[in-house]
Design a protein around this nucleic acid. Sequence first.
DNA 1: CCGCGTGATGTAGAAAAGCACATCAAGAAT
DNA 2: ATTCTTGATGTGCTTTTCTACATCACGCGG
Lengths: 197, 197
Amino acid sequence: MNYATQAIAASLREARTAKGMSQRDLSALVGVPQAQISRIEAGTVDPRVTSLIAIANALDLELTLVPRKAVPAVKSIVRQSGGQADPTRGPSQKEITRIAETLSRLQVAMPNLDGVMRLQKTFADLQRFQLPTIEPETLRALRKSLERIEVPSFQIEALTRSQDAMQKLRNQLAHQPFVPSQDASPRPAYSLDEDDA
Amino acid sequence: MNYATQAIAASLREARTAKGMSQRDLSALVGVPQAQISRIEAGTVDPRVTSLIAIANALDLELTLVPRKAVPAVKSIVRQSGGQADPTRGPSQKEITRIAETLSRLQVAMPNLDGVMRLQKTFADLQRFQLPTIEPETLRALRKSLERIEVPSFQIEALTRSQDAMQKLRNQLAHQPFVPSQDASPRPAYSLDEDDA
DNA sequence: CCGCGTGATGTAGAAAAGCACATCAAGAAT
DNA sequence: ATTCTTGATGTGCTTTTCTACATCACGCGG
């Protein structure tokens, strides 16, 4: 493990933690096992270039070759852009990655079920509407309803409710402007847990 | 082989050809076989990150992770710096890589010979004095004298003469300022071939 | 036409990544 | 105290890179 790959490994870990993601969150997004991500970040393996690129993409990073004499200027640009940390996305981003993970598990468990496919479709649709602006409580409620769909004899009611919730979120975003809600008291747009035990 | 690694592969090939290097020249510098360099540039393998970094270093490139939103600015910086092509170093640089290759072969053939070790040492010393400013004819004469040292019963006279030539180059550079000689008629500072057959 | 340099491709063997999976220790939350 | 999450580490297997080496086709210079 040499010095140069150590710098890149450190950048990956920093970017992941800045996004509030765990290694298991990243694993679900990228499709690389958590154990392997741990080894890549620690620099105990010499990964393939495609593995590095896959992880970088998920962290909104791009692997580039830069002439050595341009490196100081490039570093200055990177500092000015504030690296990749985005203070408005921590809690919501974490919930999003958990939702992505839960959907991946559902996709694996029941790949041809129409409800799951519609869920995936609507989730992808939501991401185009700047999903991170949704309050984390709303996202958490959505995720918890998704997590109830885990046994093979899945709960159709929970699935339908999740589908409806995603559809409502989509409509809500489609009819309102982008408003960062960092200072507002976080509050779910509607509750999914009215029959919680 | 995906699109992202293809962009990196193309960058490597472009940087190498801009430096006037062949794949065999680069192989001698980096220690990676020519066949593997061909495959990496063509994108037919998914190389290890350390292999990519070794090649990039030899081409005066640095592998970096850049936030995606900073990529346009970084590309602008790279264009302004004129990429990695340096119009003043073509012929001399080519001779330098050939000298390095010849020295590597000598090193392999006779690793413990004192004369070869002194050659390596002096060559490294020369590089600190901006070796590329030396006229290519001088470098070619030096390289040809090195190439005569190829059979196991090496020519001590040629070895000593190479050593002296390098030492004189070193002294010459140490006592004169840096002067790009792009327009000057290229002429060796002294001839190494007075007894050529 | 010949020789040389170059980039590409093939083969075989060694080494390591990648993956699936399990498990652990540590810290935080309940 | 217990449970959960997290990052790290181990094991076994498969796949791929890497290396060494050979060889080829092509283009260029003499």
